[in-house]
Design a protein around this nucleic acid. Structure first.
Length: 431
RNA sequence: GUGGCUAUGGUGUAAUGGCAGCACAAGAGCUUGUGGAGCUCUUUGUACGGGUUCGAGUCCCGUUAGUCACCCCA
């Protein structure tokens, strides 16, 4: 294959026609569930001030430090970024448009592309789609549980069972520092047993040591202090309530003391949903399908009022991959009911008008006007599996009629043009 | 950012260092107004750039892309 001059840059991909039905199914499932729960859709721009993310997600996180696409605008004054996630822009919009003076909470959802400059691999792309939902201005634990329940419902709409909800609480600005200290102390005393990566993490982001996959580290971590033992009164109660709601909703979850998330703005509840490994099926280990948590301080960090909130986001590519793995059958395009074939210049002209009449009558028509030979048009009709073919040639065009052929029986009859629609409708009913 | 594996028509695949084949798909035709089968013909290829060699799809180096793992994350 001689290399085409242009191809897509690393890590970004075309969503080809054959994959569209999967993406549409995800978007549709998200939309229907979220609409039911009174979430309003919002689209924020793909470009934002880069500082929005460095303030929100955290200057020292990998997302901001290494993975964010940033650039200077032509004027050179602004530094913009391709959005790496959806929450900070929504909080920005909340503050900017004065949503705090509307009845709280504000429930919003989105679906769109996000960008992170990473090395691509299974379920990981530089441009990827996420859907997400945010409940802003609600501190009650019900909101946390409801988001998990909604996420669960969306995934079930997509026939994705066998899901694991992992949940943890990482505390707030009162109790997290205490825990952090205890963890650092513990890790330092076990420093020699940790892998080299973790020794580095110990300095920059000690919480991240918790989800290291290295076996040695895991052994050490078995004895590590756990966030939930350090929660202050308020966080403890909140977490307990979230779990009680989940019990009530009958959503299976596992407490994962090692679950910490990579974004600095999280407080209290954090969760992830991943697919349970199915026996006898080689599944892709592509990480969490979806994640989320509470971010009570984000609005303030962005210079706004205090807006206790929580949110979740789902990775569409990962969900689509799982749907395919589990054999989900997306809806295909509705099949055309009739095929319109034409022969000769006069009929060709007439056929466009007939198409339009059929469209107005809500009859699905297929055609292959670019082919002039009746033979190849019939071939197309046959390949498409369409039972009724309308044939219009010179003779029919002059007479104002159309030949109607049943592809199964081979019977055909002439119908007057003004009666086509009526005739088609009665024939379709017979089937 | 680090490491492993891979790269042959549109797709899927062959070719001990010696003529790049096959299948499917696509297009044209086999009574110039009638499809599904069959037949005939046609189009399309060694990712890119170097090197070794009489000779490279095949061996070596680089690049690019894909893929997987690490890191991190959806």
């Amino acid at each position: 294959m001689s290399k085409p001059k242009f191809q897509n840059p690393t890590g970004v991909h075309d969503i080809l026609p054959e994959d569209q039905p999967y993406y549409e199914a995800v978007a549709e499932a998200a939309k229907s569930v979220l609409n039911f729960y009174q979430f309003k859709k919002i689209d924020t721009p793909i470009l934002e001030d880069a500082e929005l993310f460095s303030r929100g997600i955290g200057q020292l996180t990998d997302i901001v430090e290494k993975e964010m696409y940033t650039f200077k605008t032509k004027g050179g004054k602004d530094i913009l970024a391709l959005r790496p996630e959806g929450t900070a822009p929504i909080v920005r919009a909340y503050i900017q448009h004065g949503f705090q003076s509307m009845p709280q909470p504000i429930k919003l959802w989105y679906f769109g592309p996000f960008f992170r400059h990473e090395r691509p691999q299974a379920g990981r792309f530089r441009q990827f789609y996420q859907f997400g939902a945010e409940i802003l201005g609600e501190k009650d634990a019900l909101a946390d549980a409801q988001l998990i329940s909604i996420l669960y419902a969306i995934l079930q709409e997509l026939k994705l069972g066998d899901l694991i909800v992992k949940i943890n609480s990482i505390g707030d600005e009162n109790c997290r520092p205490v825990y952090r200290k205890a963890l650092i102390k513990f890790l330092k005393s076990n420093k020699k047993s940790l892998c080299s990566d973790c020794q580095k993490r110990l300095k920059g982001n000690p919480l991240r040591v918790l989800d290291c996959k290295n076996e040695k580290c895991r052994e050490v971590l078995a004895g590590a202090p756990q966030t939930i033992d350090f929660l202050c009164e308020e966080c403890h109660t909140h977490f307990k309530e979230v779990l009680e709601y989940l019990d009530e909703l009958k959503i299976p979850y596992i407490l994962d003391a090692n679950l910490v998330r990579g974004l600095d703005y999280y407080t209290k509840t954090v969760f992830e949903v991943e697919s349970a490994p199915v026996p006898n099926v080689e599944g892709l280990s592509q990480g969490a399908l979806s994640g989320g948590g509470r971010y009570d301080n984000l609005a303030k960090m962005l210079g706004g009022p205090e807006v206790p909130s929580c949110g979740m986001a789902g990775g569409v590519e990962r969900i689509v991959a799982l749907m395919k793995e589990r054999g989900y059958k997306p809806k295909s395009l509705p099949k055309s009911e009739v095929f319109l074939a034409q022969i000769g210049p006069l009929a060709k002209k007439r056929s466009l008008a007939i198409m339009e009449d059929l469209r107005k009558a809500n009859i699905k028509v297929a055609e292959s006007f670019s082919r002039d030979s009746l033979k190849s048009q019939m071939g197309m009709a046959s390949k498409m599996g369409i039972e009724s073919v309308l044939i219009i040639g010179q003779k029919e065009a002059l007479q104002g009629t159309v030949m109607m052929r049943n592809m199964e029986t081979g019977k055909q009859s002439e119908v007057k043009q003004e009666e086509i629609i009526k005739e088609i409708k009665t024939r379709l009913k017979e089937d």
